[in-house]
Simulated assay, not measured.
Amino acid sequence: MTKLSVPASTDVPQVEIMAVTPELAAKWLKQNTHNRNLRKRAISDYARDMAAGQWRLNGEAIKFATDGTLLDGQHRLHAVIEADVAIPLMVVTGLAGETQETMDAGRKRSAADAFSLRGEAHATVLASILKRIWMWNQGDVKFRNNYIPTTAECAALLKERPEIYRSVEIAVRTHQAFRYLPQSIVGTAHHIFSRIDVDAAVWFFVRVGDGAELSSGHPILALRNRVMTDRAESRKVPDHQSMAYLIRTWNAVRSDRPLSRIQQPADAPMPMPK
Rank of each mutant, 00 (worst) to 15 (best):
A123F: 10
E169N: 15
A112R: 00
V168K: 06
M103F: 11
N146D: 08
K142M: 09
C154I: 03
M135A: 08
M135K: 09
W136A: 03
F178Q: 09
E101S: 14
M103N: 09
G139W: 01
Y147V: 14
V141L: 11
F178C: 07
R173L: 12
Q100G: 09
R161I: 05
K131W: 01
R161Y: 07
R179V: 13
R107S: 05
R118E: 14
K142W: 00
D104M: 02
Y165K: 13
V172P: 08
Y165Q: 15
T151Q: 07
L158M: 12
I133L: 02
F143M: 07
H175I: 04
E153P: 00
S110Y: 00
R107A: 09
S128P: 00
L130S: 03
Q100P: 06
S167C: 07
V125I: 14
L158S: 08
L158A: 13
E169L: 15
P162K: 08
I170K: 15
R179L: 14
K108V: 10
S128K: 00
G106E: 14
A112G: 13
H175F: 09
I133N: 01
K159N: 06
S167M: 07
E163T: 15
R173D: 10
L181C: 12
K142Q: 05
F115W: 05
A111Y: 02
E120S: 15
S116K: 12
A171R: 10
L181G: 09
A127K: 01
G139P: 03
R118Q: 11
N137K: 09
R118F: 00
F143G: 11
E169G: 05
A112S: 09
I133C: 04
S110H: 01
I170P: 11
S128H: 04
Q176W: 02
T150R: 01
R132Q: 12
C154S: 09
E101F: 15
D140H: 10
A177G: 04
S110K: 00
G119T: 04
I129S: 01
S116M: 14
Q100F: 04
D140S: 10
K159A: 08
A155R: 04
S167G: 14
Y180W: 12
Y165F: 13
E163Q: 10
G106R: 12
Q138L: 15
Q176N: 09
A111E: 03
L181D: 08
R173N: 05
R107P: 11
I129E: 00
R161N: 06
A177W: 06
I129Q: 03
Y165A: 12
A177T: 07
A123N: 07
